[in-house]
Write a protein that binds this DNA or RNA. Structure first.
Lengths: 224, 224
DNA sequence: AGAGCTGGATTGTAGAACAATATTGTGGAA
DNA sequence: TTCCACAATATTGTTCTACAATCCAGCTCT
């Protein structure tokens, strides 16, 4: 068991170089150190993260598959930026996929198996609600919520595909702090509906959530 | 215009090395020169396509994002293989996404804009139906069909995300030649429903298609 | 037979080097 | 001035080489 402990401890250090860049850029976005439209120069990133250009390129490739960066030949990478119209298109796709996730989760929820997980997610929602206006706790709560739903839904393809939806960038660009709290309430309602295995309520809350994000996008459409 | 012609002609040659590997592996799958489970060794691929290992790695990364290869650290890449249970999970996701595509396409179809495109897709369906039992025309017809639907739906995120769904591998593993023709009929019915902008018919045909693929998977579940 | 070790194969990574392409800046012509 | 052509610069695409890290199969020893 000492061996296990060691393996777990070294896990953090032994992440590969390309993984480090990948996670680093995502973290930068979360903490608003990078903004949509910003160019990402391979050489700069390599120097900054202390890795080779190969590793940077692989990271950019993966980020591109996630819809986080735009990649165009000989012109390099840039943090993806979506106009309002495209944000709405992303939302439609996200709606179709998350609604499948919620429905499936509601059908499979088992308190014995998933109760603790759901409680943890709700705790993160609480934490975000209690916090000031910083973006980090909200992002954490959102991720925790979706991770839990995907876990309960237990569909491997869904888990694989979900991060590839461009919602990350949509949230980055079109997130009004004023409406963030309302969305937390929404997540909470979905949690309840899933725990109650109430299909109708899940559908309804899912729709409410989408409507809300749509309002959010339209409200902020002019401002950027 | 001579310049344009040249640019178009050289387009084929000037595709990058990593792109060549990416497309090459997909072509190998289409023509059954590679099978699920097969390991892909970087050095071999590099030699075979006459490119560096970097290019191979980037191609594998992209194929992994598409759900075509499994990539695990220090163990390399292999053509993805899904058991029947996972194939059904993929199908559920594909259903959610394609059904959005069909609905949207039905809502936006305009004969003036999309008539020719749809006719071309139907021609490919005809060609597959007329052909013998080879896999290639069927694959071509299927791709043509989905490309057209996505074009009509005109949702950029949908177009971006669609290829990332693992249906490619599901079709590879669980496709009974006997049921292939029936699926063509199904595509045709969806085309008609979209052209008629008949939402109800689209839903119904979409459901029929999913049911059929599900049968197909279950029927072939034991055999591999 | 099973545990542990060893060697070979493969992946992960850095770095140098150069070609291909895009972008920017500069100068001159209208 | 304003616009176009062209040169200079920056950046990406790609291949090579080299080596460390890791996995795996086969072997040995008990």
């Amino acid at each position: 068991m000492a061996i296990v402990a060691m393996a777990l401890a070294s896990k953090q250090d032994s992440v590969g170089a390309s993984q480090r860049v990948y996670a680093g850029i995502l973290a930068d976005l979360d903490e608003r150190r990078m903004a949509p439209g910003q160019r990402l120069v391979e050489g700069d990133l390599a120097a900054r993260f202390g890795v080779g250009r190969n590793a940077v390129r692989e990271a950019l490739q993966r980020l591109s598959a996630r819809g986080v960066v735009d990649l165009s030949p000989f012109r390099g990478a840039a943090i993806r930026r979506v106009e309002a119209a495209e944000a709405l298109e992303v939302l439609e796709v996200a709606d179709a996929v998350t609604s499948l996730a919620f429905r499936t989760a509601a059908g499979r929820f088992d308190p014995a198996l998933h109760g603790a997980m759901l409680a943890a997610a709700i705790a993160d929602l609480d934490a975000a609600q209690a916090s000031g206006g910083e973006a980090a706790p909200f992002g954490r709560a959102r991720r925790s919520f979706y991770r839990t739903m995907l876990e309960i839904a237990a569909n491997r393809e869904l888990q694989r595909l979900f991060p590839a939806i461009g919602m990350h960038i949509v949230y980055l660009q079109y997130q009004s702090p004023r409406l963030q709290r309302a969305r937390l309430e929404n997540y909470r309602a979905i949690c309840s509906a899933v725990a109650a295995r109430d299909l109708a309520a899940v559908e309804q809350q899912g729709r409410a959530h989408v409507d809300q994000v749509r309002e959010n996008i339209l409200a902020l459409a002019g401002t950027r």
